[in-house]
Amino acid sequence: MKVANLLGALVLLALTSSFATAYDPSPLQDICVAINDTDSAVLVNGKFCKNPSLYTPDDFSFSGFDVPGNTSNQLGVHVNIVTADLMPGLNTLGVSMARIDFAPNGGLNPPHYHPRASELLLVVKGTLYAGFVTSNPDHRLFAKILKPGDLIVFPFGLVHFQLNIGKTPAVAIAALTSQNPGVNTVANAIFGASPSINPAVITTAFHLDRKLVEDLQSQEWVNPT
């Protein structure tokens, strides 16, 4: 009986361990279509590893976060994100960082979300109105006015934004929990999709007039850069 109990316990432990470790890795791209033909396959976002004997300190460092970004664009914002492309030592570590510059009086990092990351934002200069909105069914807004030294977190996959409400330039530093967090700007995805979404979808979903929707779809939608 004791042997049977011991075997049962071992089986249960094995199943529990399997359930605890059997999960899919976080994706590093929006779309990946499976294919068996290796000649037609491409490496997306994956990185080959350098021979460890060839590592240098430069692989693990980056210079340039002190340089202000050009905010003379439609949104009045510039995002300089450092991923494994710019800092090879970040590869496989699951982190990245960005400097965000905002023009005075309304520079905006528009509503967007990161499909593969949470974000922690630190204001280092200026005054920002920043927040995020929870998912269905509540859609609760959590927003604050932030000044230098203030932090705010944007949970994984939730829509968030930052607006410079001050009369001077603003700067924030963001840490993200993915080496390739991705970004989907909400307005661009809806009104700037290519090919365009059928206006009937948007008029019903957003309670908008069809002519207004068609006008919005005809405009140029730029991504924060």
Rank of each mutant, 00 (worst) to 15 (best):
G89N: 04
L120I: 15
P111V: 06
P195F: 09
P111T: 07
F156C: 03
L128Q: 01
A175S: 14
M87N: 09
T225R: 12
V186K: 02
L141R: 11
L212N: 10
M1Y: 04
V11G: 03
F102T: 04
A98Y: 02
T185A: 11
V79A: 11
H160R: 07
L122Q: 08
K125D: 05
F48D: 12
S18G: 10
T83C: 01
G192M: 00
P115M: 02
V124C: 04
V11H: 05
Q162S: 11
T177C: 02
Q162Y: 03
D59V: 05
M1H: 03
T204A: 13
V44M: 07
P57F: 10
G8D: 06
G94H: 00
L6V: 11
T127D: 06
D215A: 13
V3M: 10
Q74I: 11
L146M: 08
L28T: 14
H114V: 08
V171R: 01
L7E: 15
S135E: 13
A41F: 07
W221G: 00
K47D: 15
L212R: 04
S53D: 14
T83P: 01
G8Y: 00
I31F: 12
N136S: 08
S72D: 13
A172C: 10
P115C: 01
D85H: 07
D39W: 06
V44Y: 05
L10Y: 13
G192W: 00
P111K: 02
D37E: 14
V82A: 01
S40T: 12
V33D: 07
D138N: 14
G64F: 10
N45F: 02
G157A: 06
R210C: 13
P195A: 13
S17W: 14
T21S: 12
I100K: 02
T21P: 06
F142H: 08
L176R: 05
I35T: 15
D37Q: 13
V213A: 04
L10I: 14
R116C: 03
L75A: 04
T204C: 09
S194Y: 08
S17C: 13
R99P: 03
P199C: 04
N109H: 08
E214I: 07
F142P: 02
T127C: 03
I145S: 08
H114S: 12
L208W: 01
Q162A: 06
N5W: 00
